[in-house]
Nucleic acid binder design. Sequence first.
DNA 1: CGCACGATGCGCT
DNA 2: GCGCATCGTGCGA
Length: 213
Amino acid sequence: MKLLAPNWQPSNLSFSPLPQRFFSNDTVSVAQKLLGKGLFVQSGQDVLLSEIVEVEAYLQDDPASHSFRGLTARNRPMFGPAGTCYVYLSYGINFCMNVVTAPRGQGEAVLLRAAIPLVGIKLFFKNRGIPFDNQPKSMKNLLSGPGKLTQGFGIDLNFNGRSYDRNDFKLVDLGKTLRSTEITCSPRIGISKGTELPLRFCVKDSLWLSRRG
DNA sequence: CGCACGATGCGCT
DNA sequence: GCGCATCGTGCGA
């Protein structure tokens, strides 16, 4: 199994953040375009990079969205500028991280649900509380779910409201372009309202999803 | 002010 | 496959 891209060196980790105009577009389009993009987080000398393979869109007038009932103290970042990070605690246990989208503060966002670990594998294991090994089974368990992804990256409420355009916290272009035929859409997971909408987007047949797309 | 309920993950069966 | 942990949010009283 091909687990890692071979050429990730410190010298080619100096990606530019995706510009704000990338996020200030139609939320469904942004969600699909986030597939194949990189999430980069640096803390001191520790660098973490992954490739996003699964997302969900949350829209205006969407009963499953935290923004559905309007602005509250919790969902305030959702109404902020495109490219803002919205983090919340799920089930009292896991954090989930979103990217605010749409041209104006419409309360729309994309939930990051799963990613391929690329750089910082040992730290991903450590953050996840899993003993390090090179088994494919373990690797696929690192970031395959919204709570696992935030735990792997060490994302918590400190990141809430932050912009994804910092040198130490950014979404980046990894230089790959997915064809629309490589993207699947399906109903969103773990919600009780808006379940009929196919707003979950996955890299087709990826081995790194939270569950089969 | 009380309380029901999650945009989930894990361990056990 | 299923039950449970665990807690902040926000709605209804």
